[in-house]
Design a protein around this nucleic acid. Structure first.
Length: 613
DNA sequence: GTAGGGTTAG
């Protein structure tokens, strides 16, 4: 294309930058200086520069005698010395430079220049304009394809999603084979940017535009849907794509599996596993990670053991994720020794432990009350230069609180605050419930109030803790008020929240209200659990209604709920108080046979039962 | 340039 035609186009498309004719002499002089100075910084006299316009610049950049490095030098000079030149480098200048770069085969640099065009405030112009100029400037269709692909990627890199769409349309119109890999970059960027389901819409466009789709991009979209809670839509997509010949791979299946596991949709998990078997998709480390969590959640510990064996037999390559889930599972089961040995194994294998593995193990030690060991591990972690984060701190705090070591907990909070840590909703809750457990109710409430003062929004768990504190103090009115406040926020109280309040009413003997709440929770789909029944049993027993208590006791067992030590203690006390010694002893034996450990209260009740007629 | 892991309430 001749310069004359280009000028016409520029006049039409860029009315804001009127073109003056090229000054051939100036262009030649500049080229000469550039050639002479080689790679040394470009130096020129002000009169030459003041004579520059975009057409003259264009002449310089398209001068075949000028080496590409000198072009680059000159171009960068223009870009970085805006105050010296009368006219800023415009679109024409950029495209001229791109043409030179193309001849030199330097696509990296072309991408950089496109980035300037797209994102530089001095040059920015609508992408339609850029594309229409592409057509005029470049007649090599492969290069045009490469250029638009690069432009597409540049738009994506700079989060110019609308513009990326326009480039996509352009490529489609031009009949280019759009590269799936470029689309993947767009999908990932859209998914990260939290722009609703735009990634899904774009995927549809990919499919409709004949982009060759593979499992990779399908998985990204499936995962995006799952994270938005639309797991079914994700599965439908898998099926739809399968009918188009795009097979899901192990990553796709892991994505779906994980979504169902997190949603505790246990039935579907086995369905997906069967599908994997039928499709002969082999499990990898990520699959095992998800499955250990799944079978751990539903208490199928023998299944977890089986998975461990399988991992060993199949020589699955273990990674830190898998170790973490195994360590976590052992900790949950209380086999801290096994957890520690897995941790050692991990480091021996040369894998690098991170904050999460440390977190899992520290939690395990805290839960078994081994605070010194937990502290040691924290020091170890620090010596490995692993950043101690909020989760680890909260884990340790919880450990101290569980043991009633409030001074240690307070000290740790103080130390961490000095280091710039901000307590979060977890921290405040841990501290409040720690205080509450020691009946230090004023301090407990203060922690939760401090949380609000520090601009954090209390969640349902924080509310539950506060409700429980008020119930324990006997202030059921305030507890009830908070309960309604929580409902008013649109957050529905869960089983634990209901239980806290039911326990409060039961302790006061206000059984009518307690039962009313029990009915309300059932109506709302919150299933009463052992805690609900234990509170009610305890309430009835305390106020002498042993028959009601026995009715509840039998009802809960009919529902498949297993009474715990507290339930037995309450009912044995209730029976004893009424002198129903035989029944009390029968339940005592039952309690023992179930492995519960009776405490002093059980024995004094039983002894008392013998003195009551 | 796709997936998986650690912390709070009775």
């Amino acid at each position: 294309m001749s310069t004359k035609n280009l000028v016409k186009i520029f006049e039409k498309s860029l009315p804001r930058c009127p073109s003056s004719p090229a000054n051939k002499k100036t262009a030649e002089e500049i080229a000469e200086i550039l050639i002479k100075s080689g790679l040394k910084p470009f130096k020129t006299n002000p009169s030459l520069i003041s004579d520059l316009n975009s057409n003259t610049t264009d002449l310089v950049l398209s001068n075949p005698n000028l080496p590409i490095n000198s072009c680059t030098l000159f171009f960068n000079f223009l870009r970085t010395n805006l105050s010296l030149t009368p006219q800023k480098p415009n679109l024409q200048t950029h495209l001229s430079f791109i043409r030179r770069l193309h001849k030199a085969g330097n696509f990296e640099e072309i991408k950089q220049v496109l980035k300037f065009i797209v994102s530089d405030e001095n040059i920015r112009c609508p992408v339609e304009e850029i594309l229409s100029l592409f057509d005029f400037e470049f007649d090599n269709s492969y290069f045009l394809y490469k250029l638009s692909d690069l432009l597409f990627r540049v738009c994506v890199d700079n989060k110019r999603f609308e513009e990326a769409n326009l480039v996509f349309d352009y490529m489609k119109k031009m009949g280019f084979n759009i590269d799936e890999r470029s689309c993947i970059l767009y999908l990932v960027a859209l998914k990260k940017s939290d722009k609703g389901d735009s990634f899904f819409e774009f995927f549809r466009r990919m499919v409709n535009s004949g982009v060759e789709i593979g499992a990779y991009s399908m998985t990204i979209v499936t995962d995006g849907l799952c994270r938005r809670g639309e797991v079914e839509k994700g599965r439908e997509l898998m099926n739809e794509m399968a009918s188009k010949g795009v097979k899901a791979n192990v990553v796709t299946y892991n994505t779906i599996l994980n979504a169902y596991v997190k949603r505790k949709d246990f039935g579907v998990v086995s369905e997906v596993l069967m599908l994997m078997e039928r499709e002969e998709v082999e499990y990898n480390a990520a699959t095992y990670t998800v499955l250990i969590e799944h079978f751990g959640n539903i208490g199928k510990h023998d299944e977890v053991e089986k998975l461990f064996d399988e991992i060993g037999e199949r020589k699955v390559e273990m990674d830190v994720h898998l170790y973490t889930s195994m360590i976590h599972w052992h900790c949950r089961r209380g086999s801290i020794k096994k957890a520690v040995s897995l941790f050692d194994e991990l480091t021996e294998k040369g894998l690098v432990p991170n904050a999460r593995v440390y977190g899992a193990l520290i939690d395990g030690l805290c839960k078994t009350g081994q605070m010194e060991a937990a502290q040691l591990l924290l020091k170890d972690m620090q010596s490995q230069k692993i950043v101690v984060n909020q989760v680890i701190i909260n884990t340790l705090l919880h450990g101290y609180c569980r043991k009633g070591m409030m001074d240690d907990a307070l000290r740790l909070v103080a130390v961490m605050e000095k280091k710039g840590f901000k307590p979060d909703v977890f921290t405040y809750n841990i501290m409040a419930s720690g205080m509450s457990r020691l009946k230090r109710y004023e301090e407990a409430k203060r922690w939760l109030f401090m949380m609000v003062e520090n601009q954090l929004t209390p969640n349902a768990i924080n509310f539950t803790t506060l409700i429980d504190i008020h119930c324990k103090e006997g202030n059921i009115v305030e507890a009830k008020r908070l309960f309604r406040q929580l409902q008013g926020k649109g957050e529905s109280p869960n089983t634990v929240t209901y239980n806290a309040l039911i326990n409060g009413y039961s302790k006061k003997g206000e059984m009518k209200d307690a039962y009313k709440l029990r009915d309300e929770m059932e109506a709302k789909g919150r299933i009463p659990d052992v805690y609900t029944y234990t509170s009610l049993v305890h309430g009835e027993c305390s106020f002498g209604n042993i028959d009601e208590a026995m009715k509840l006791f039998n009802e809960m067992r009919q529902k498949g709920l297993v009474p715990n030590a507290v339930t037995y203690t309450a009912i044995i006390a209730g029976l004893s108080k009424k002198g129903r010694s035989d029944e009390a002893f029968r339940l005592y034996n039952e309690m023992i046979s179930l492995g519960h450990v009776p405490d002093q209260r059980v024995y004094s009740s039983l002894v008392g039962s013998l003195h009551t007629t």
